[in-house]
């Protein structure tokens, strides 16, 4: 963490989801899709969290709810220590401090605008027009487009994919946010640009004390840049901890399966290939939502705890930043001898 970040007064967590629920109702089925189904997550100052999961697990919806683009049906988004109000003025203020960076820079940038106009758009909308030129140049410099004057008059098609993503990030930085929420920021980029953009996110954290929530399906990205990892499955965070804890000592069978299928790692670890795709969020299985695909449950069908998997929803993980948390009945420490122990547990110290 950078020294500058620590000096700034205010709450330790800059952005928090508290028992957040987002549902989408469908025309056909009566049951709404529970995209985000009771999630706690706290992003600390100058912290990078990687939110990992399969498509359809609700990770993008959670990100959009944190930015204030989706209004939750339950729970709260806590921004700078206060619950987010969904009035126009409050949202405006919130979206200035929490900036969204999208997946595909070519789609996010208007092809008929110059880099200057693209970066200046946010400040103009927020009425920050004093010293606009300087503000744009500073943002471009911070995003690694140096010297900025060289890029101002260019159009998106004159830039490489990595440079385009830097312009998107510069557009966010021009508003001096405290948090970047980046949804798959490198998945549409080439391998050589990937590292450059990830490096930039680390640099911004180190120099500006910027926090980031990076949504991705890529565990390698978490290893590259994140401080903590949250693994999401079907609307719920199932494992949370530091990168080293979660990726090197995974406790949840879903995290283990995700790690086992990484190309190039299979020789060292047995391959756990989950069958099929994640179930419909409108029909989340009862008990533990992962049990129909869980290799551990299949293996331990005779274990008394397997009944819990079918009948009891594991406790929702709290937003603790200093513990390795797992929502799994089998990972729960002491659970077999002490059935009253809470099913969610902190693993290790």
């Amino acid at each position: 963490m950078s020294a500058a970040a620590i000096e700034v007064p205010g709450p330790a967590d800059v952005l928090e989801a508290r028992n957040l629920r987002v549902t989408f109702s469908s025309r056909r089925s009566a049951a709404p899709a529970r995209a985000v189904d009771d999630v706690n997550l706290a992003l600390g100052r100058a912290e990078i969290i990687a939110l990992i999961g399969e498509s359809g697990c609700g990770k993008s919806t959670l990100a959009r709810a944190l930015v204030g683009l989706v209004k939750p049906q339950g729970g709260q988004v806590i921004s700078q220590g206060a619950p987010l109000k969904y009035s126009k003025a409050a949202l405006r203020q919130h979206r200035r401090s929490v900036q969204l960076v999208l997946q595909d820079p070519a789609g996010a940038l208007n092809p008929r605008h110059t880099v200057y106009d693209l970066v200046a758009e946010g400040p103009r909308l927020h009425g920050l027009t004093g010293n606009l030129y300087e503000r744009v140049c500073t943002a471009l410099t911070q995003a690694g487009l140096r010297p900025p004057e060289q890029f101002l008059a260019r159009y998106p098609h004159q830039l490489s994919g990595g440079q385009q993503q830097r312009v998107v990030i510069a557009g966010a930085l021009a508003l001096e946010p405290s948090v970047l929420v980046a949804d798959e920021p490198v998945s549409s980029l080439d391998a050589s640009a990937r590292g450059e953009v990830l490096r930039l996110l680390i640099d911004l954290r180190d120099t500006l004390g910027l926090s980031a929530l990076v949504v991705s399906h890529d565990l390698g990205l978490a290893w590259n840049i994140a401080d903590r990892v949250a693994v999401m499955y079907l609307g719920r965070i199932v494992e949370l901890g530091t990168v080293e804890e979660v990726l090197l000592r995974p406790q949840h069978p879903y995290t283990r399966a995700l790690l086992s299928i990484l190309p190039g790692r299979r020789s060292a670890q047995t391959l756990t290939l989950l069958q099929g795709e994640a179930p419909d969020p409108a029909a989340i299985p009862g008990g533990c939502r992962f049990h129909p695909r869980c290799p551990l449950y299949a293996e331990k069908a005779d274990d008394p705890r397997a009944q819990w998997c079918r009948e009891r929803d594991p406790q929702v993980l709290p937003a603790l930043s200093d513990s390795h948390l797992v929502a799994c009945h089998f990972a729960a420490s002491g659970a077999p001898d002490n059935p009253t122990a809470p099913p969610a547990s902190a693993v290790g110290a």
């Binding site: 391998a191 490096r199 990484l262």
Partner: peptide, 16 residues
Amino acid sequence: FPVIGDPASRRQPRGL
């Protein structure tokens, strides 16, 4: 593309 567990790539994304 890093190898998870490789200390050389931890917090060290490499681009070209």
